[in-house]
Design a protein around this nucleic acid. Sequence first.
DNA 1: AATTAGCACTCAACTTATGCGAGTGCCAAT
DNA 2: ATTGGCACTCGCATAAGTTGAGTGCTAATT
Lengths: 351, 351
Amino acid sequence: MSVNKRDLNDRSLQLLKTLVERYISEGQPVGSRILSKDSDLKLSPATIRNVMADLEDLGLIHSPHTSAGRIPTVSGYRLFVDSLLTVKPLDSKEINRLYQGLSETEDTSHMIGVASKLMADLTRMAGVVTLPKRELVCLRHIEFLPLSHNRVLVIFVTNEQEVHNKVIHTDKVFSVTELQQSANYLNSVYCGQSLVAVRAAILKELQDDQERTNQAMLDAIKMAQLTFDASQKTDDFVLTGETNLMGFSELADRNHLKNLFEAFSQKQDVIHLLDQSMQAEGVQIFIGQESGYQAFDQCSLVTSSYSVNDEVVGVLGVIGPTRMAYEKIIPFVDVTAKLLGAALNPKTSAP
Amino acid sequence: MSVNKRDLNDRSLQLLKTLVERYISEGQPVGSRILSKDSDLKLSPATIRNVMADLEDLGLIHSPHTSAGRIPTVSGYRLFVDSLLTVKPLDSKEINRLYQGLSETEDTSHMIGVASKLMADLTRMAGVVTLPKRELVCLRHIEFLPLSHNRVLVIFVTNEQEVHNKVIHTDKVFSVTELQQSANYLNSVYCGQSLVAVRAAILKELQDDQERTNQAMLDAIKMAQLTFDASQKTDDFVLTGETNLMGFSELADRNHLKNLFEAFSQKQDVIHLLDQSMQAEGVQIFIGQESGYQAFDQCSLVTSSYSVNDEVVGVLGVIGPTRMAYEKIIPFVDVTAKLLGAALNPKTSAP
DNA sequence: AATTAGCACTCAACTTATGCGAGTGCCAAT
DNA sequence: ATTGGCACTCGCATAAGTTGAGTGCTAATT
């Protein structure tokens, strides 16, 4: 389906590149005449028309109508960002603002919000950041409170000061004292370990011969298991600057805009998309409907996973119209991901 | 500025009423001819034109242009909802759905979300609900965890299972044991009391001769004071169904829509508006720019405070175009507020 | 004195015509 | 292979004409 760089000669590529750049900067379909002047190649419009016809046959560009210029198709954009793009180094002012913004807070979830807002403000598009996944976080403190029946409210603190809570259903009814004992036990044993490590340790503990462990410890372990269950909380992200998207003419259609915003508020599709880019390291780009989601037609999503201690823990990105300045946005997202990763790492702190 | 019912004779009022009703249902400026047929009064269009001219002089209606019918102005709507409206009783199906929806959960913050979504879905407009304010909630459990320096992470549970947390800065550095003692003390004394009561008790305690109280208790009290500070958390609400608003033709202007959504995401103006209706009991209506906020032009907000144990604890409402079916929305908001209040009351539970 | 019929007038909205210009595709000449 | 030339297409803007819903005013009617 997609076209490879090698399927085309240098001249065609050069022209495609100029065309996409021109279209991105001007927003108007570009014709042979303009392209002839814009490109460094000394070719007449007629020649360029021939080349354009080839590019159209390959599905890289198309005209909205007979007497208009050409605009890139999704494949055209794809080839462009994959093989033709010359990224611009990021403005040092922007780096600075990112760095300043991210370093002024310690609270993780607050920082995620700041990162999202910074991206939205600096790109004038929408910024999105997933919450870091569990691997990253260390258990600091756990606490059980009895609710009615056999339900227990678990409160646990991770890292410095992230407070989480969850209601679990236990086999039997526990007294306040029993719950306290369990919490004490868990705190003494697992405090300081990462949630993933805790989960693994608990599973192991449960599989070991249960004879040796006493009842109180077993209860504690069971409750811990319920708490740190498969409830991998990858299910949330912070989206900011949606309203920036309302300005773009490519989203002028009311229905289109509505669909997009509905996708945002239902979260599901966005999560799925972000999850995908969680797999790969570095910057990833979804152009238009490539993602398979109708709602993202005419929109591109530039993402990058971010890591702490060389481990991928989340994804962030920018959502905007397909016709966006990729050469700036890509390094921008890349840098933001790195800065966020660094800011989240409690050990590193120098710029 | 505003026009009173008494300034007009019955016939004019009758006609204004029909006009507003007609405009709300059809969305088209209504002319003398239509009004003549629509109203029960047997009057010729010519007569009606005279009356309309009067209504226009009073600023209750106006025409978009010479050869169009009339549409209500803000004052016109105001007079209509205040004095002319005949509310329709709520459909029992809707009451049922509300009741079902609200009773299937115990978790307060979840319930707020459900209420908001129900309102949005049933009205096909946007639903908004403030979180219940502190007066309502009882302290159930409090806990202190030391952070770096002299900062302390406070976790407290209210009602059944609402977990809150906050970082406070203390005068001196406390050990884990000291913090535990303080928490124990506070738990034993204040557990079960409403947050307002706790706050009051603490202030009193501080003003009493401090000689008698020992140091440990004093530390505990000071920390409690920092925790339950003036941090009245009226600052948040749940807004749902914003996208429903994108369908309305009155919000067709891109900029207008953008402003509205920006107001939503900045929250501030919405909070201010909701705060206002917190004062009054029962249903309140803000029509168009009456509220003073540019962004809410062409929008109306129908709110009602909701109460638990006869005390107002929050506000909920519906946001939609000025041209909304007030006769249905008003009772709807009213009932929702009552049902939410009832659902939040832990004692009552029968339908 | 209130109501109504009649009439001239206004104005948005729609339709049709027309010209313009940007751009194309193709072909024959270079 | 590249280019100039040319006929052709089609969106877009502007203008002109038509329609119809609705008004305000006046004079007649009740």
